[in-house]
């Protein structure tokens, strides 16, 4: 019957002031959250050096993996740009006549994975080569055209992945009269493999550093708990619930996260600014439009939110481990 002791004693003693409507209860709950949030922020503010150091540690730990992730994303941008221009070049046997080459081109063109096939016959190829290489005399000396008919095959959009192109290469290789198939994707595949590997390594690093952040915040919050031991005891003695006792520390963790996230954003932006000049010059030398991606508004916001969640988690770990230890024990002398 009397599962809620509050209600029972209230009705027993007629303390009407307890029974505020739920709206007022909700408001005072929110007020309390605001007060605790502000109070825990002020506490950090009052110890600026210690707080700043925690923020820096967190900022560095967060900025490192995020910087690597940004670099990876930039590299993937490069390979994506190249994949879209991927073309397969098939060199035919020297003794294949032009009609057979045209038939072959049609046959390949009919395949679903192929968007376009362009036939460059050997005469045309020789002309082009003559014009561009400056080896006219040498070619004349050869007497015979050393170049085969060539098919330039452009894959369909959806087959432009590394695997798709590879399948296409196998298909073309199997055709009669094809001597050699070349894709200049080797370096791209190596880059892809490398970015795959790197991305795994970066994620592993990110997870490790996130764990480190949680532990650092946990330890910092543990010290905060120790320094507010008396307050926790009194709060528990006067009937503060676990949630009530935990709340200021969870806010503390989240504020550490906010600071750490901001520091990380700042570090990333300044690193980007510092590196952007040399990178542009380097990319220019490679005739690439490669550029380092910045965080952007969304990225910065995500980073800060993730940092706050990590801080909150760290505080949660500390609170779980240490708040239960603080139980009011000694109240009487005998």
């Amino acid at each position: 019957m009397a599962t809620d002791p509050r209600r029972k004693t209230e009705s027993g003693r007629g303390a009407a002031s307890h029974s505020s409507p739920w709206k007022e209860q909700a408001r005072s709950y929110l007020d309390h959250h605001r007060k605790i949030g502000r109070d825990s922020a002020q506490r950090l503010w009052r110890a600026p050096v210690a707080s700043l150091m925690t923020w820096m540690v967190m900022g560095v730990a967060l900025a490192l993996p995020v910087a690597l992730l940004l670099l990876l994303a930039s590299l993937e941008g490069v390979s994506a740009g190249w994949e879209s221009s991927a073309r397969v070049t098939a060199y035919l046997d020297l003794d294949v006549p032009l009609e057979d080459a045209q038939a072959l081109a049609k046959k390949i063109d009919a395949d679903g994975r192929v968007a376009e096939v362009q036939l460059i016959d050997r005469e045309q190829a020789l002309e082009e080569f003559r014009a561009s290489s400056g080896l006219e005399d040498a070619l004349d000396y050869l007497g015979e055209n050393p170049l085969p008919h060539t098919l330039l095959i452009t894959p369909e959009e959806r087959s432009r992945s590394a695997a798709g192109v590879e399948a296409l290469v196998t298909f073309v290789k199997g055709m009669e009269g094809v001597e050699r198939v070349q894709v200049d994707l080797g370096w791209l595949q190596r880059l892809n493999a490398m970015t795959d590997l790197l991305s795994r390594a970066v994620w592993a690093l990110a997870i490790l550093l996130a764990a480190a952040v949680i532990l650092v915040i946990g330890n910092t919050v543990r010290l905060a708990i120790e320094s507010r031991r008396d307050e926790i005891l009194v709060a528990k003695l006067v009937g503060g619930t676990d949630a009530f006792v935990r709340r200021p520390f969870l806010y503390t963790g989240a504020w550490y996260g906010l600071g750490g996230g901001l520091v990380a954003c700042l570090l990333l932006e300044s690193a980007l600014w510092w590196l952007s000049g040399p990178i542009e010059r380097l990319a220019g030398l490679y005739r690439s439009d490669f550029s380092l991606m910045g965080l952007g508004m969304d990225g910065a916001l995500t980073l800060i939110i993730v940092a706050m969640v990590l801080g909150w988690l760290g505080a949660w770990v500390a609170v779980k481990r240490h708040l239960d230890d603080i139980e009011p024990g000694e109240i009487a002398g005998g």
């Binding site: 528990k236 009937g239 109240i331």
Partner: peptide, 16 residues
């Protein structure tokens, strides 16, 4: 437990 403690006022020797 907290809800029970809200109905018990305690005065401590060392004030707390």
């Amino acid at each position: 437990i907290p809800y029970i403690r809200r109905h018990i006022g305690v005065v401590f020797q060392n004030h707390q």
